Amino acid sequence: MAAPKRTVPPKAKAPIKAVRKPAAKKKTTSSATTPFKILRWSLLLLFLSFIVAGIYHYRHGVLYYLGFKSSKRIDVITKDEKKIGDLRIYEIVSRHKDRVFGFDISHYQGSINWDSIERTKGDIPLDFVFIRATAGVDGADTEYKRNWKQSKKAGFIRGAYHYYRPDENSIKQADNFIKTVKLGKGDLPPVLDIEKVSGVQSIDSLKSGLRKWLVKVEGHYGVKPIIYSGESYYTDFLKEEFTEYNLWIANYSFFEEEIRKEWLFWQFTDKGAVKGIDGTVDVNIYNGNLDGLKKLQIQ
């Protein structure tokens, strides 16, 4: 009998191991990145909002600039006519077209070509000029005599001012001005320019000196002087004691766009450009019309 065949049991298959796909890496956001993006976009939106608000706020100035002709009087206060320049200045000009404009000068403007200044032509006629005459007890502006003579010849209503030095004798400063400046019919009242505090005396002593200068100069010319100063200086040191004097205030603030009722003159920029004058020049507004300015002249 044949031997039975041996049955070989099948080999057990090895267990199949599950192959896991690598897990996709989760995108992680840095805790610092998100706030940074938010801040960046917020600042961008804020910046764009300022631009839009600024254009709207100064829309009159933009239109005024675009409407300027090549014959304009003050080259609207910027040298490069291809640039819009300082919109604040255009806005101020557009808001005060019923007022009178002028400028002020000293030897810092060099030798002025008065024949080149077209006083009455263009969109902004220039009707008055203040000229620095003296400084301190013995200072004299090197261009004063020439500017004083030529400005009248050019048809300007003119005025002279004294730069007050706080640490020098007030009476001698008044004498210096009186000796130098001969005011007559048609001229504007004398001006006291005070911008600094003293380094050696108290504020009360400084005020006393200013008062002496003002009284002596008024006694000599028979007309009350005008006080020129920066708005903050006047408010901090002079406002309470010198309310009886007319004010010529310097204020270049971006947010200041209208002449205030208490300001007789407003120096609203130091970046004017007038044909015939090299470099920049201060530009001013008189708080009234031309008839009012003529009434201010010495009779």
Rank of each mutant, 00 (worst) to 15 (best):
I171H: 00
I171T: 02
K172C: 00
D175E: 15
F177L: 01
I178T: 00
K179S: 00
K179F: 00
T180C: 01
T180G: 02
V181S: 00
K182M: 06
K182G: 03
L183P: 03
G184E: 13
G184N: 07
K185D: 10
K185G: 04
G186C: 09
D187A: 06
D187E: 10
D187L: 06
D187I: 08
L188G: 05
L188E: 05
P189S: 11
L192I: 15
L192R: 01
D193T: 04
D193I: 02
I194P: 02
I194W: 01
I194F: 02
I194G: 08
E195P: 10
E195F: 07
K196H: 12
K196R: 11
K196L: 14
V197C: 07
V197P: 03
V197S: 10
G199M: 12
G199R: 14
G199F: 10
V200G: 07
V200Y: 14
V200P: 04
S202Q: 02
S202V: 12
S202F: 03
I203E: 12
I203C: 02
D204Q: 11
D204P: 03
S205I: 06
L206H: 07
L206P: 10
R211C: 04
K212I: 06
W213D: 00
L214Y: 02
L214N: 00
L214A: 00
V215W: 07
V215L: 13
V215H: 09
V215A: 12
K216M: 00
K216A: 01
V217R: 01
E218K: 13
G219N: 15
H220L: 01
H220V: 01
Y221H: 03
Y221K: 02
G222F: 13
G222E: 14
V223W: 08
V223D: 03
K224C: 05
P225I: 05
P225E: 08
Y228V: 08
Y228F: 13
E231I: 12
E231C: 06
S232A: 11
S232Q: 09
Y234S: 10
Y234F: 14
T235R: 15
D236K: 15
L238W: 05
L238V: 02
L238K: 07
E240L: 12
F242M: 11
F242G: 06
T243K: 15
E244C: 05
Y245R: 11
N246G: 10
N246L: 14
W248T: 04
W248C: 05
I249V: 14
I249D: 01
A250P: 08
N251Y: 06
N251V: 05
Y252A: 06
S253R: 13
F255K: 08
F255G: 07
F255V: 11
E256L: 10
E258P: 04
I259L: 03
R260P: 01
R260T: 08
K261V: 08
W263A: 03
W263I: 12
F265H: 11
Q267M: 05
T269V: 13
D270H: 11
K271E: 15
K271Y: 09
K271H: 13
K271G: 15
G272H: 07
A273T: 13
A273Y: 15
V274T: 07
V274Y: 10
K275T: 14
K275M: 08
G276P: 14
I277P: 13
I277A: 13
I277L: 11
G279M: 04
V281K: 12
